[in-house]
Design a binder for these strands. Structure first.
Length: 436
RNA sequence: GCGGCCAUAGCUCAGUUGGUUAGAGCACUAGAUUGUGAUUCUAGGGGUCGCGGGUUCGAAUCCCGUUGGCCGCCCCA
């Protein structure tokens, strides 16, 4: 019995497990390239301080961190954003704007296993740096939608809930709430969907009871479902900041509408996202049915590059996780069979024929065909069985009779028909068959 | 960090009130089959029954602990 296993929360990827993941990565990469994003990567191990600087000391409890042999406090990266901010910050003056970058990376969090959550998972990350206007949001949200549509998901399957922390700040400040009060209220709003009005205890616990007026104002915002609803609420208030902010909303929603993506976007101010480094629009993608975790999340974080030691640099980004994504696609039957299979399976009569076959096998492989053959001398029956099970469409038969005549047999494994092909025309015959 | 359920072959699972050498199907390997593949038949490999302790003449079975898994809570960058 195997005495070594993978560590708790980590997954082995046997070929049948790796295939779906490869499919996700390929689709994501294709979408990102279609949008003009460039791929980057970075070390898996980072300085612990990078994350403490971003998220505070409490974060350490959820990290895979340790002290290395040089007495450095290090950690496996739990997210990509600080890394990309560090990289962009270091070269910000030399990079052409806007900076549109993406990565597909393994991330590590020291947490309890749960459905759609493990200690090592992969994320697709996309970020735009150097563009402060809502055009960056349009580009990123449309990329997010494309990343999910590329998997075969439609607007009936998922939607992107769009919200705005600035709107909440302006709205609550206009009602006399201070900075700390607003943050506490955003914490409550984040929990509102699950807890209902009990969520307001997060606010009342430290800032005292809410007036009926304040509570109904918050509930009014949470009830907003469309740009028209939002415009109506703002119109009543006659507040310059809110009115100005509404223009950004019109740009984002108008741009996405012009791209034909309205059906994928919901206005929903109940999304504010956990840690408070987001500075404007925030958004999350969800399965419309089911009760899976968020498929993706992101938003604007204009202060983070500077906070991590770089220059002032506005930024928007989002991430899609592989585990929830794969659960959803599996549920919907959208994981294609992408097992690696040969184009050609070679059947050989014996030791001499094997050497003859090797010549053609090498030539076919050199021009890119996937070719497999049995390593041991087997009876023809067994070889044909192997050929079928390999998934190859054709078998090439190198028997003594054929080689004596200067031909090989090309067998169509699904039709069970074969033709003789002169040795020197094998490559052409294979090409014609597979392209025909 | 907390709680619920679970643990027998690679997988899915049987295993009687505790009883002698722990089984089946699937999968894998080989043979029947020395030139034609999805059927069939036969054989084989593979288990310290998650691990440790206890009760007992005797434990896969009962008790305790522990590790791991699944699910949920906290958290979710």
């Amino acid at each position: 019995m195997a005495s070594f296993k993978s560590l708790p929360g980590f997954r082995d990827f046997y070929p049948e497990d790796l295939a779906p993941r490869t499919h996700l990565f390929r689709q994501w990469r294709q979408s990102a390239h279609a949008f003009g994003f460039q791929e980057y990567d970075a070390p898996v191990l980072e300085s612990l301080d990078l994350y403490k600087a971003k998220s505070g000391d409490e974060i350490e409890g959820q990290l895979f961190n340790f002290t290395d042999k040089g007495e450095r406090e290090v950690t496996l990266r739990p997210e990509m954003t600080p890394t990309v901010c560090r990289m962009v910050g270091a070269k910000a003056n030399a990079l052409k704007r806007p900076i549109k970058w993406f990565s597909i990376a393994d991330l590590f969090r020291y947490e309890r296993m749960q459905k759609g959550r493990g200690r090592c998972f992969a994320q697709f990350n996309a970020d735009i740096f150097g563009e402060a206007g809502p055009e960056a949001e349009i580009e990123l949200i449309s990329l997010l939608i494309q990343c999910l549509r590329g998997m075969g998901l439609q607007s009936e399957d998922f939607h992107v809930r769009l919200s705005d922390r600035n709107l909440w700040f302006y709205y609550l400040e206009a009602r006399g709430l201070g900075d700390e009060q607003v943050k506490a209220m955003l914490g409550a709003i984040d929990k509102f969907e699950r807890l209902g009005e009990d969520a307001f205890e997060i606010y009342t616990k430290t800032h005292g009871a809410m007036s009926d007026d304040l509570k109904s104002a918050v509930l009014r915002m949470l009830a907003i479902k469309s740009l028209a609803d939002l415009e109506a609420v703002v119109a009543e208030l006659d507040n310059a900041q809110l009115t100005e902010r509404l223009d950004d909303w019109r740009k984002v929603l108008g741009g996405l509408d012009a791209m034909g993506l309205s059906d994928f976007v919901s206005v929903d101010l109940g999304v504010v996202r956990g840690l408070a480094y987001y500075t404007g629009f925030v958004f999350e993608a969800f399965d419309r049915k089911g009760d899976l975790r968020a498929l993706a999340g992101g938003g604007r974080y204009n202060d983070l590059v500077k906070k991590l030691g770089g220059p002032e640099l506005p930024a928007v980004g989002f991430a899609i996780g592989d585990m929830t994504m794969e659960l959803l696609l599996r549920e919907r039957g959208l994981l294609p069979d992408v097992a690696s299979r040969p184009d050609v399976y070679v059947v050989v009569g014996g030791a001499e024929e094997r050497l003859e076959a090797f010549r053609d096998i090498a030539a076919l492989r050199a021009v890119g065909y996937r070719v497999d053959y049995p390593m041991k001398d087997l009876g023809f029956g067994k070889q044909f069985k192997n050929a079928t099970e390999s998934g190859a469409r054709i078998a090439l038969i190198y028997g003594g009779d054929e080689l004596a005549k200067g031909v090989v047999k090309l067998r169509d494994l699904s039709q069970r028909e074969e033709v003789d092909v002169p040795r020197e025309q094998v490559a052409e015959a294979v090409r014609d068959f597979l392209s025909g």
